[in-house]
Design a protein around this nucleic acid. Structure first.
Lengths: 137, 137
DNA sequence: CTGGGTGCAAAGTATTTGCATGAAC
DNA sequence: GTTCATGCAAATACTTTGCACCCAG
């Protein structure tokens, strides 16, 4: 059990329940997970957990900025830890979703200038073919 | 009725039905629409249209690359015409979603280099506050 | 203790499917 | 005439809600 999660939860006045810690651990392990994946994984060692709890906690944890939603074309909505900024790459063929640390400040500045918006965040998903799938074509 | 839509549909061997043309016209008019918005709008002058038809056509038209899905954080999934590349800006406060023509080639290249993926497309949504909402704060 | 969190069941939404009819080509 | 699209109703999937009970603080 990761002590950081406990701090994060406490900092937002959220109770540290085993269900929440389990969710955060699984998402940390797996990177990006959809609701069902989280549910099934946790059910393995915590059979009494309820889907409703997962849904409620996703909402709570997203509002607390501990989780972040990831929406990529074609894919089911997924969730990830909201620690650091990054963009995503998805393989059109095998569906793999990866993180990529790329600086988006230029894009943000350009957007701010062109649109007049104050920009706070970027959600970028690049779609392509991963090296493995390229090979086998 | 836009002659371009007829061409697009025929080019993909899809039948040119009034329902499809109505959908494309509405989306062209309104920019970005979710399933319900499309349904309600078309129902106004085409009362017999069925939601199932809307869903089926959305799938068909997305596969044909005539429509494109737009997934922005917080928002319901929307659809737009898939004509030209652009990115999106969303206002966190009023929910407005705008198109922005910004060149993403640099981002694509950088991503390709870092990840080894062949990049075909970008789905970028920048989140911020629009000028109007900034004012009234 | 006290308040928020959990689990269950039920309600509410959203989306998909099968099939008979109808329209496009 | 054939093929594909439509509309309806039913089935399925997804998400939220209410409430009694329980546990973290």
């Amino acid at each position: 059990m990761d002590i950081q999660f406990v701090k994060d939860l406490k900092a937002k006045n959220l109770k540290v329940t085993p269900q929440r810690v389990a969710m955060l651990n699984e998402i940390k392990e797996n990177g990006h997970m959809d609701v069902d994946e989280i549910y099934l994984k946790i059910k393995e060692f915590y059979p009494s957990i309820s889907l409703a709890t997962i849904y409620k906690n996703i909402i709570t944890l997203c509002e607390a900025n501990i989780l972040r939603e990831v929406k990529a074309p074609t894919q089911k909505q997924k969730y990830e830890l909201a620690c650091d900024k990054h963009i995503h790459v998805v393989c059109e063929k095998c569906g793999k979703l990866e993180d990529l640390k790329i600086d988006t400040k230029k894009l943000e500045k350009l957007t701010a200038t062109k649109s007049g918006y104050k920009i706070y965040d970027v959600s970028a998903v690049l779609i392509g073919i991963c090296p493995k799938c390229s090979e086998s074509m």
